[in-house]
Design a protein around this nucleic acid. Structure first.
Lengths: 196, 196
DNA sequence: GTCTATACATCGATAGAC
DNA sequence: GTCTATCGATGTATAGAC
């Protein structure tokens, strides 16, 4: 970010993405965006209609990236559980939390259907994608037949989002790691109860 | 709230609790607090030193209540799993989210050790309390011996916190309910894998 | 495209009358 | 204890020169 090779518009988007992540929509002012981007007042309003317009561009970009990174793990080779594990255990900026999930706490984002849509769609996509992976694992006999893929997928995404909350509260990655370990433990004991 | 029988200070605390829940710390102004409480500018600054002082009183009150309500389910009669189920399935204002968990997304709250402490302590207490309940269930043979109470407790709290995030994103309780159903399904299949 | 000047509201708090 | 007046700073945006 902020290389000489980024256009003004791109620098503004990058700056906004960071600030939305760190401070949320309400906590982010146009002035702060401009300063971090190293861009003047007039420039910002030339490229974007205003704060909501710029935020939309930033949120969409973040959502795209998040999906792409998840798809990397979820479409990798390996068993269903391998891929879910890889996804959950992947390196993350745990204490910063999820840049999309955090927006659900921003009343001004949730109140604006345009800003809200990418948040809704991203998390819905993630649940569906995980449900597919889990359903596949069940069909292949890797997971117990009693497992409900939709429900388990919601659980996995929730553990991730909630893990961030616990980590931020504790200012430690420990509860996040424990929550992930816990859900993977419960899930993998499902692999073959008869094998035990 | 807001009965004629509430003192000015109590009305201010009640108003602040609501606004912190709905809009977070940054999104809540002294003016909005006063208006909802039906209290004048001068009154607020007579009873409280300022916004942080009032927020602290509000957060502490909310934290107390949250603990008390959790303890209701967790100390009830029944098996370990019964109590965890009762806690997770209890009636909740799902779309409003967790009034304590949401504060982890407020940078100004997290940056102030005094405001942060009750958030940290409440979620830490909840994890410990759930770990006790789960450990008890394991000792009594209700849960598999391979279950790690600390990890599973973190998972349960994370599912709750993350469930709120998913519900708010979708503007529907469905993903919340699915996440809860999912984790309880995984947990109860642990009751006795040999019994299957 | 970018800059500076300007505008008008709100934020968070203080002062002082009653 | 409560009210109104006032304050300097910031938020969000527009106007118009260059």
């Amino acid at each position: 970010m902020y290389t000489r090779f980024m256009s003004t518009a791109e620098r503004l988007i990058a700056s906004t993405r960071e600030l939305l992540w760190e401070r949320g929509y309400t906590g982010t002012s146009p002035k702060a965006i401009q300063q971090r981007a190293g861009v003047g007042q007039g420039s910002m309003y030339h490229h974007f209609a205003g704060k909501p317009d710029l935020a939309l561009a930033a949120i969409r970009r973040t959502a795209e990236e998040m999906r792409a990174k998840a798809e990397e793990q979820l479409s990798a080779p390996g068993t269903s559980v391998d891929r879910v594990t890889a996804y959950l255990r992947r390196e993350r900026d745990v204490l910063k939390g999820c840049p999309i999930g955090r927006l659900t706490q921003d009343p001004d984002v949730m109140a604006d259907p345009t800003l809200r849509a990418p948040v809704d769609e991203t998390l819905a996509w993630l649940r569906e994608r995980l449900a597919e992976v889990l359903a596949e694992g069940r069909e292949r006999g890797e997971l117990d037949t009693t497992l409900d893929p939709q429900a388990a997928a919601a659980t996995v995404v929730a553990v991730l989002q909630g893990g961030y909350v616990l980590a931020r509260a504790a200012d430690s990655v420990q509860p996040f790691d424990q929550a992930i370990t816990g859900v993977l433990g419960l899930l993998t004991t499902h692999i073959s109860p008869t094998r035990k």
